[in-house]
């Protein structure tokens, strides 16, 4: 007895758990233990991706990890991923030199709701490595700059040497149509920028809370404090979006690892509105 007819399957569907083999085109060190890999595909067209989505990257013989896209969604053939070496697989990935093969499958997950950004102020708040998944969103917002109100990027890191994408940040800083503030938790001379937590920047950011779309990416604690600060500033929880992180093994919603409350984050997320996350984020060890 076959399964019910409600589960049709295309015979030509590619095996979803099978990676495509690509090569490292070049890699650049962005910060201590953080590298950006630009991948080269063997002429094989890469599927389009949305800002905030992720790929599963395989270091052959070591394993597989989820890594957000950090490149431009308008140029999906240029696969860009920013990786921090924190475990066996990510250590292996950042050690790959130009020409070395790796596996890629995806894109997976739901990205930033940029379709909701039209006509609104957009506030991006990034913490640490969280700037990488937000960068595609910023590319897309700036590419259609006239469609949005004020765009603000608030970025916090641990120390000045942890700041990612410095050259781009410098260029963005000179744009008249983007407000950029960078702050660090700890600094020594000669740092002349902000010192303090990223939430402290919110009070000085210019945005209309009633018509603001807020995109948050960073450590969970930082996102929780930032989301609460934004709510206190009058932004609706429905308009605040967080990119959540949990263990992910399959990317297609069947391995069960990435559950957060009722969400399968690889499928229902990783980006979810704070309105849905507020309660579960308060539960310990959920």
């Amino acid at each position: 007895m076959a399964p019910a007819a409600e589960f049709p399957v295309s015979q030509t569907a590619p095996e979803p758990l099978l990676p495509r083999v690509v090569c490292v085109h070049r890699r650049r060190r962005d910060a201590p233990r953080v590298w950006t890999l630009e991948l080269q595909t063997a002429g094989e067209p890469q599927p389009p991706f949305a800002a905030g989505q992720f790929n599963m990257l395989t270091a052959f013989g070591v394993g597989e990890v989820p890594i957000s896209f950090s490149g431009d969604p308008a140029a999906p053939q240029r696969l860009v991923h920013t990786v921090r070496a924190v475990g066996a697989v990510s250590e292996a990935l950042v050690r790959l030199e130009a020409g070395a093969p790796l596996g890629v499958r995806g894109p997976y997950g739901k990205g930033w709701p940029l379709e909701a950004a039209d006509g609104r102020d957009v506030l991006l708040v990034a913490g640490g490595l969280g700037l990488a998944p937000l960068r595609p969103a910023l590319y897309q917002l700036l590419a259609q700059r006239e469609r949005h109100g004020r765009i603000t990027l608030l970025y916090g890191t641990r120390s000045p040497r942890d700041i990612l994408f410095r050259r781009e940040l410098a260029a963005w800083g000179t744009r008249g149509d983007l407000a950029l503030e960078v702050t660090v938790d700890h600094a020594t001379t000669p740092w002349q920028g902000h010192v303090g937590v990223v939430t402290a920047l919110i009070a000085h950011a210019r945005f209309d809370p009633q018509r603001t779309l807020a995109l948050l990416c960073g450590p969970e604690i930082m996102m929780r404090f930032t989301a609460e600060a934004l709510c206190a500033a009058g932004v609706a929880p429905e308009a605040i979006h967080l990119s959540m992180e949990r263990s992910m093994k399959c990317g297609v919603g069947t391995c069960g690892h990435c559950q957060f409350g009722g969400f399968l984050l690889c499928r229902d997320g990783p980006v979810l509105p704070y309105a849905l996350l507020r309660a579960p984020l308060r539960v310990r060890e959920l």
Partner: peptide, 11 residues
């Protein structure tokens, strides 16, 4: 069936 066939990437 719902878990392994009902999603975007049927097994």
């Amino acid at each position: 069936d719902r878990v392994w066939l009902g999603g975007a990437a049927p097994d």
